[in-house]
Amino acid sequence: MLQIADIHVYRGKTHVLKGVRLDVRKGEIAALIGANGAGKTTLLRTISGLLRPARGKILLEGSRTAGRMDISRLAPEGITKLGVIHCPEGRGIFSQLTVRENLMIGAYLRSDKEGIAADYERVCTLFPILGSRSNQAGGSLSGGEQEMLAVGRALMGRPELLLLDEPSLGLGPIIVDTLFATLAEINAQGVTLLLVEQNAVKALLLAHRAWVLEIGRVTLSGSSRELIDDENVKKAYLGGT
């Protein structure tokens, strides 16, 4: 579904991504793990069009693209339109907008009123707390609720590929478990997920396949089973033993 071919990205003069290659298959949960500063967020921002790669291609094949298409030169709004939706780092909730408005803005590019209403109901069933707080300001929610709002907002755009940047950041373990269960459910409904995580255990347990990103390069890849068993991954990301 998504193929990243030899992407190079600079931020200012720093060469952040040095030829990253990976491919996400339709229907799977893919995880990208790595330490702080490895370039994970940069990669997601490049996929969603907030950053322009200096070199390389990002090929997308979805139901809204004509065959395979290079999206690396598109503006973010164009990429969102193709069904690739990015849940940004730090959640990016609009704190002055109400919860309902936050969800509605996720459907900004859509005009099918009934479909939007149905999806709104769906999100409120998935995350009941959002329905009960619909008129509250987004900024008044707790961290976990904000993460749910961010995921719900992304769902309002009818994603085919959902990019999630550190969804577990700053959340307590119980909330993380609920959240990840919901992510699995979302995936079961047919949404492909690309998950970026520092919480490698959780991410590998959820994902089908995974990559390890180290200072701008993919150093390891495989099924998440393989990676969990890999000695180096254990030592570096899973806390030893």
């Binding site: 969603s48 069009g49 907030l50 503006a75 973010p76 709004e77 969102t80 339109k81 939706i85 990015h86 940004p88 990016g92 609009f94 704190s95 002055q96 907008l97 408005e101 509605m104 803005i105 996720g106 900004y108 590019l109 907002r153 755009g157």
Partner: peptide
């Protein structure tokens, strides 16, 4: 909708773009 987009952009330009604005 336009007003909502304006308020969203005022708060966070990058995220507003991710919403397709």
């Amino acid at each position: 909708k336009l007003g909502m987009a304006m308020r969203a952009t005022a708060e966070n330009i990058d995220v507003a773009r991710l919403m397709g604005i």
